[in-house]
């Protein structure tokens, strides 16, 4: 209980700090919204040239884009700022975090929760909901449940990817933008039907890394389409099954990273 109070206090500190920069906050709120809007606009622009991309119509693609946007923005808002671990390591902020009587990861998350991404999350959910409507889905109990669980599972999965790629900074402080290849890159990957990608590239991102089960497969299950790539129908419901191990792996790597930091101090 006491510990939860502490995290609430950290979050409160973040909120009050932001109040000092109302204008900046408003601009960042809008621009974060803008960046997700542009992602969706891009899909519309691409479909101007053709009615079908990778075997899927605009509405069908938008379901994947919306599912991705909702899940990704959820993850980005909660743990996205862990990206800054590089800076925390370089400037020694991590040391100040380590001398407090709280766990490191929740502390970092609540100290700097990026609430400027709030509108973006709302927009992500809106796109997802609009795509659900636009596709005339034949609702069943299973599909209704999936429609709710899928974006959450996607969020958990992307959150794990954020933590995983940020952990790289424990070993490689100068890793720069490499994490973005898998966080933002992963988002771009799942925003389109995975049928568009070349074989080995798709195998790597979709199946080896698990991104294929996050948006594409649940979208197929919601649409009632069979997978042209040949995965069975139950794969549409497998998103939580990749989210759980992803979290476990992320937790493991994070813990190892903290231990590594403590043995090398840099």
């Amino acid at each position: 209980m006491g510990e939860i109070g502490a995290y609430v206090a950290l979050l409160g500190g973040k909120l009050r700090s932001m109040a000092a920069y109302r204008t900046s906050f408003a601009i960042e709120l809008l621009s974060n919204l803008g960046s997700t809007v542009l992602d969706v606009v891009t899909v519309f622009v691409l479909y101007r040239a053709t009615a079908v991309v990778g075997g899927f119509s605009l509405a069908e693609s938008l379901l994947m884009t919306g599912l991705t946007a909702a899940g990704f923005t959820l993850a980005d808002m909660i743990v996205g700022n862990i990206d800054d671990l590089k800076r925390y390591v370089r400037t020694g902020t991590l040391d100040t975090v380590l001398i407090r009587p709280l766990r490191v990861l929740p502390q970092l998350i609540f100290m700097d929760l990026p609430l400027r991404k709030l509108l973006r999350l709302a927009f992500g959910i809106f796109v997802y909901a609009a795509a659900l409507v636009a596709n005339h889905i034949q609702w069943t109990a299973a599909r209704a449940l999936l429609a709710v669980v899928a974006p959450i599972a996607a969020g958990v999965f992307f959150g794990a990817i954020f933590v995983l790629t940020a952990s790289l900074a424990f070993w490689w402080v100068e890793s720069g933008e490499i994490g973005a290849s898998f966080t933002y890159g992963g988002r771009d990957f799942t925003s389109y039907p995975i049928t568009v990608y070349g074989d080995w590239f798709r195998d790597l991102f979709a199946y080896a890394l698990g991104f294929g089960l996050v948006a594409y497969q649940p979208a197929l299950a919601l649409l009632g389409r069979t997978d042209p790539l040949g995965l069975p129908a139950w794969a549409g419901y497998a998103a939580p099954l990749v989210a759980a191990p992803a979290v476990a792996i992320a937790a493991l790597v994070w813990g190892t990273g903290i231990r590594h930091y403590r043995s090398t101090g840099s």
């Binding site: 109070g5 609430v8 206090a9 500190g13 009050r16 000092a20």
Partner: peptide, 24 residues
């Protein structure tokens, strides 16, 4: 000496209040 425990954008009083919760 070269790192801060305090909340950069908050008054000292607020930082102290937050630390009260952090340290229970």
């Amino acid at each position: 000496g070269q790192r801060s425990q305090l909340w950069w954008d908050l008054p000292l009083r607020e930082s102290f209040r937050l630390l009260r919760h952090v340290y229970r």
